[in-house]
Simulated scan of single mutants.
Amino acid sequence: MNVGLVPRDDAFVHINPYPVAHPAAPPSADPRFFERYWNVWHDDTGDLLLAVGGTCYPALGRVESYAIVNFRGDHRSVRSYRPLSSDPADLAVGPIRPTIVDGLRRWRHTLEHGEWGCSYELEWIDTRRPTYGAAWGPEPPPGAGERQVTAGFETFGQVRGWVRIGDTRIDWSPGLAHGTRDRHWGVGRGVGGPALNGGRAHRPGWKGGIWIDLHDVGLWGKKLLYGFDDPRPGHGAVRGIERRLRFEPDTHLFVEGLIDLTFDDGRRRSLHLRRLGNQTAFMCCGFYGGTPDKGLHPGEYGGPERTEWDQFDVTDSRVRLALRGLDEHHCVVTDGDHVTTGILQPVEPDVYEACLAGKPGWSLW
């Protein structure tokens, strides 16, 4: 049965990997079940990049959020934790306070001022039509818990409001900033750290992640997202990707690349990507792969409410090397006669190693 999304699917109300309109199914019994929101926002100048997210773990009774702000290489992160409340609409964790204004269309995001030295008040508006999808992992061995699955939707949009870093305030009026978001829920993805995953730390992310809103379609990994008024149903797909990439010699972080795409209708597109300065959101600061200070993985902290923060100068290659892992690189993207900006999300140094080895679809440039 093909069941579509409804505005309530933006809320943290799921009990299994299906949309809320799906016929009743038993709730997940796996303690690794999660609900997550994730966002990346950026300008087109290469000055300011934000990655913001939060996750609820109903069975573990925990909620956590993070906000990463990179302003010209000044990389600041706030992470906050609290016990689960009885109100699924309450997404606030410490100073990080998102609000769903209009499901599947509009959110409001706030980071309150504190000793971390950054804050924001932003409004997000979806511009691409979300469609439900699920990625199921292999069947687990006996006694290993439920089959892992990441379900939910993705979209692109516009963001407006203000961001403050130190003594600098940046105002994003309509049209100056954009980005992407997803709303996922499911089982697994390393939730709870090694203790809930057979003693193993989960390797975060997909090394081929790419999130770019092109002029006619949104490229979200291997999905093609259409506008709300587009007559094409559902979403399209990318059938083939060939990558030729360049890297920093000392850190093996992405610098520049050519990406050739084959769409499901046979059309081919070639994109040129170039990283904008040191505008990278290092996602270890958002729990992916373990936080820089304590090595905490998603859902691993179960203590009392607390907020922590860090600040890094990522213009220093030694700092970038220490932080690398799942990384969100802000890139200028040339698509024929069109130029925009978007995000390349590799797992590093895995991508460099894939290119060096000449694995299918990967090569050095």
Results as ranks from 00 to 15, higher is better:
Val6Asn: 04
Ala201Gly: 11
Val13Lys: 05
Pro304Gly: 03
Gly208Lys: 08
Arg32Leu: 06
Thr340Leu: 00
Pro194Ser: 12
Trp365Val: 01
Gly302Lys: 02
Gly137Asp: 02
Gly236Pro: 15
Glu256Cys: 10
Gly190Tyr: 08
Pro233Thr: 10
Thr99Cys: 03
Tyr226Ala: 06
Leu364Asn: 11
Asp230Val: 07
Glu328Phe: 12
Trp107Leu: 06
Gly54Asn: 04
Leu5Asp: 01
Gly103Asn: 08
Arg79Phe: 02
Asp126Trp: 05
Gly137Ser: 06
Val332Gly: 10
Gly208Asn: 13
Tyr66Ser: 07
His329Cys: 12
Arg128Phe: 07
Leu48Ser: 03
Ala89Glu: 13
Glu300Trp: 09
Val238His: 00
Arg200Glu: 15
Arg32Tyr: 01
Cys284Leu: 00
Glu353Tyr: 09
Gly299Arg: 12
Phe263Lys: 00
Gly295Asn: 08
Leu253Gly: 07
Gly236Met: 10
Gly218Ser: 13
Leu356Cys: 10
Thr262Glu: 10
Ile210Gly: 09
Phe263Asn: 03
Gly236Glu: 08
Gly161Pro: 13
Leu49Pro: 13
Gly361Arg: 14
Arg8Gly: 04
Pro304Trp: 08
Ser80Gly: 04
Arg164Thr: 12
Gln279Thr: 14
Met1Glu: 01
Ile241Ala: 12
Gly277Thr: 02
Leu219Asn: 10
Leu225Met: 10
Ala92Pro: 07
Cys284Met: 03
Asp230Glu: 07
Arg76Ile: 08
Pro95Lys: 05
Gly240Ser: 15
Trp309Leu: 04
Cys331His: 05
Gly61Trp: 13
Val187Ala: 03
Tyr57Val: 05
Leu48Asn: 01
Thr315Asn: 13
Gly190Phe: 10
Thr45Lys: 04
Glu112Phe: 00
Gly236Val: 06
Gly54Lys: 11
